[in-house]
Write a protein that binds this DNA or RNA. Sequence first.
DNA 1: TAAAACATGACAACTACTGTCATGATTAAA
DNA 2: TTTAATCATGACAGTAGTTGTCATGTTTTA
Lengths: 314, 314
Amino acid sequence: MSKAKRLLDILLFVSAKKKFTAQEVADEFNISIRTVHRYILDLSDMGLPIYAEQGRNGGYSVLTSRLLPPILFTEDEAVSIFFAFQSLHYYRDLPFNTEMKSASHKLYSSLQEEAKQKVDKLQSYIAFWNPKRAIETPLLKAVLEVAIENKNLHIQYESKSGTTTKYIHPIGVYAHDGLWYMPAFDLTKQKILLFRVDRILSIVESEENKEEFINLEEWFGNTYEIKQPIRLHVLLSREGVRQCRSEPSLEDLVVIKEDGTGYIDSIIDKGELNFTSPLFYRLGMHAQIVEPNELINILRQQAKDILSMYPENE
Amino acid sequence: MSKAKRLLDILLFVSAKKKFTAQEVADEFNISIRTVHRYILDLSDMGLPIYAEQGRNGGYSVLTSRLLPPILFTEDEAVSIFFAFQSLHYYRDLPFNTEMKSASHKLYSSLQEEAKQKVDKLQSYIAFWNPKRAIETPLLKAVLEVAIENKNLHIQYESKSGTTTKYIHPIGVYAHDGLWYMPAFDLTKQKILLFRVDRILSIVESEENKEEFINLEEWFGNTYEIKQPIRLHVLLSREGVRQCRSEPSLEDLVVIKEDGTGYIDSIIDKGELNFTSPLFYRLGMHAQIVEPNELINILRQQAKDILSMYPENE
DNA sequence: TAAAACATGACAACTACTGTCATGATTAAA
DNA sequence: TTTAATCATGACAGTAGTTGTCATGTTTTA
């Protein structure tokens, strides 16, 4: 077997253990100890951060965590990785910040001058904007780890009604619009609730949960399950059509007529009305609600509230 | 020099040219042609997609685009790259989709079984949610390229008032909430406008522009420049505080009092009032606007509109 | 003090690599 | 059609690199 291949095998063998002796490697690959010493010297020369402890109970250790075999990337693939990192630029708290930094440093330093410029340029012409939150999410990594380990949790949570304590089973975490959310099964209330990770004040790990829960992807799919069906029927002007099509929850429902105006006529869940009403409030004349009366009443009630807060005689 | 090192040098030399002959390589590195042939066979065995054209004017070509030298990633770095790719999962159109796929395939296949499971698990517990838009953005890559090349553009754009033609200089593109936006300098109106890339119907490249324009990052910084200052003074209930702190444009302005209620008293740009009014409408009783009267009037007017659209007698 | 480990050098046996020469095949230009 | 420029492959001897064995040191801990 060629030396290069053998070195690689040893690299992988060695980076998977936290400590090993030359004898172990010699036995594993059927080579002499002298050769193992020579190989380790070679790996060390190649930059692998390996060090030896002298004496009885001594041995070698590798400082980095487990290594992958060398990978040949094309320049374009490297650019795509930078591009993906770029997309996380506007998040304040991320679970893998340090690893991302060292990975991009390794990539960047092996790019040729020309490609470096390309990457720099790309990064000044493309961005993934998120509101750069001042809000810290210190417990993000901790919560993610517990979720992956399938454990239950006791949390202190800052909710509408003040600080409360919950006993939950996390389903996963997701980022949206610069904030981190955690859907979780509330073991007391026996239903799934959505928490904001930055509002979690403290966590206490509890036992592992063997039960099968819905996973994050399924949860996304099921979020819009209709429990209390209600008919939504709205007539839209051209501008109304345009704006509704930018609204993720409604874009699929808009029907466009030949003259550019349109309408929505669909069955939605009653619970969604509260989220929908601000949109129709904003649209004003551009959206004429035909049904349901509940939605009209919400809008009318809110309008009355506003008028009573700010009476005419100022 | 060791064979491994020499092979690497040749790999880099070779992957940077689109075509080369054995003689060229032999001259470059002062080795015999026979050895070059042997080396090329080795590289080919290692999986480099290299092929030869026979005969006069023949030579070798490498099929992939330029390669980087082999990189040793740690397992954690690999995971961070998957994590970054994951963040782009919910975008429909991306400029580097195919490269991202091949890069993640290379990474994934060199992970050990255990690490593969870790990655799979991570991906089912963490997500970066964006409304999964039905809207296509076919011109995204084209627009990005033109922006990088610093060129002017003629575009057809679907705006409020129908299809219009614009002559612009793009500043960059950015993604927000699942949609792609392009701030650009309108060369006719001589000011910066914001376009939605999915609403661009066609583009025609024009001449390169030598002038220095603001770049994307500067533009983000300058967006909130105050042109018409106006005092915003609002009293907030506890719930009002909570909600305003989740609003990126307001979170920095909220002052919290000891009892948990709070207020905003700050100078903002008059143009922002239109974007702010839906929030205060939604907050209703939780936000008592003291100033400006303009904002109160907007709310009152909108409330009146709503009430006139849906009169009491139903 | 002895045992277990790393560290290093010398040397002969073995293996791999290299250059030279030879021969063929394929292709395009003269 | 011939010729020159290419890749492709084999043989072989000389050179260079790698390996195992043996020897000797050093460091650490039981």
